[in-house]
Amino acid sequence: MKTYEIVVCALFAALMAIGANVSPFLTIGGVPVTLQLMFAILAGGLLGSRLGSFSMMAYVCIGLAGAPVFAQFKGGPASILSPTFGFVLSFIAVAYATGKLLSEPAKKAAYLYTGAVVILLNYVIGTHYMYAAFRWWAEAPQGFSYAVAWSWMAAYLPLDLAVIALSLAAVPKIRLALSKRSVYIIKE
C-alpha cells in the first residue's frame, strides 16, 4: 500500500470511531443510534471497494484490540458477544459493495441500486447475527423470535434510509470537489 492509501484508510477508521459515538447514549430497543452506516458508505464510495473495506476492517480490528471505538465507547474481544456486533461486521461488506457498485461514473439508477444493496447487507448480516446472539449466548427477551428480531429493525428503517440517501448523494459531490482541488482520488 502507498502511504496516501494507509493515511486515508486510517482516516476512515477514525471517522467510524467518531460516528459510532456521536450520540453515545441514544438507543432504540437496546441498539445504539450511530452514523457508522454513513461513514461505511462514504469509505466505499470515495476510496473504492478494496480500500473502503480495508478501512472498515481496520476499524473492527482496532475495536477488537481493546480501543473503545465501538458504539457507547466499547471495545475489546468481548464485543464479539454483543448482539449488535453483526452490524459492525456488516460495515465491511457495505463499504466493499458501495465501492464496487459506484466504481464507474454512475447514473442515478446505480445509486438507487446501491442504496438497496447497502440496506440489505446491513440488515441481513446485522439482524441474523443479532438473532443468533440472542438465541445462543445473550439473554433473549421474553417472546423473542426471528420475526421479533426483524420487527425491531422497522424502528431504524426510516433513519437508515435517510442516512443512505444523504450519504449516496454526497459521494459524487465530494468526488467532484476533490477532483477540482487536484486531491488524489483513489481509483480501482
Rank of each mutant, 00 (worst) to 15 (best):
F87H: 03
S90M: 06
G115H: 00
A109N: 07
F73H: 15
A78L: 15
P83G: 08
Q142Y: 14
A106I: 09
F70M: 06
I119S: 05
S103K: 14
Y131C: 12
M130L: 15
A93V: 05
I92Q: 05
A67G: 06
P68C: 13
F91K: 02
I92P: 02
G86R: 00
K74L: 09
A138G: 12
T127Q: 13
P105W: 04
A95C: 08
V118A: 02
V94Q: 01
A132K: 02
P141H: 07
F73A: 15
A154H: 06
S90P: 06
Y129M: 06
T127V: 12
A78T: 14
T114K: 00
W152P: 01
P158T: 02
V69I: 08
G143R: 13
A67I: 06
Q72V: 09
E139D: 15
P83N: 08
G99E: 03
F87W: 04
L112R: 05
A140N: 10
S103L: 02
L101N: 00
I125S: 04
V148H: 11
E139T: 15
P141R: 11
Y96N: 01
W152C: 13
A155V: 08
P83W: 00
L81S: 12
A93G: 08
L121E: 08
P158Q: 05
P77S: 14
Q72A: 15
I125F: 10
V148F: 15
S145A: 07
S151H: 13
I125D: 04
V117N: 02
Y131V: 11
A67D: 05
S151K: 14
T98G: 06
F134Y: 15
G86H: 01
V94L: 00
G75H: 13
F70A: 03
P158V: 04
F73Q: 13
S90L: 06
K108A: 12
F144K: 06
S145K: 06
A93W: 01
P77F: 13
A106Y: 03
H128W: 14
P141W: 09
W136N: 12
A147Q: 13
M153W: 09
G99Q: 10
E139F: 13
I125A: 01
P68M: 12
I80N: 03
T127F: 09
M130A: 10
M153D: 10
Y129T: 07
V88I: 13
A110D: 08
A155I: 02
F134T: 10
A132V: 14
A110K: 14
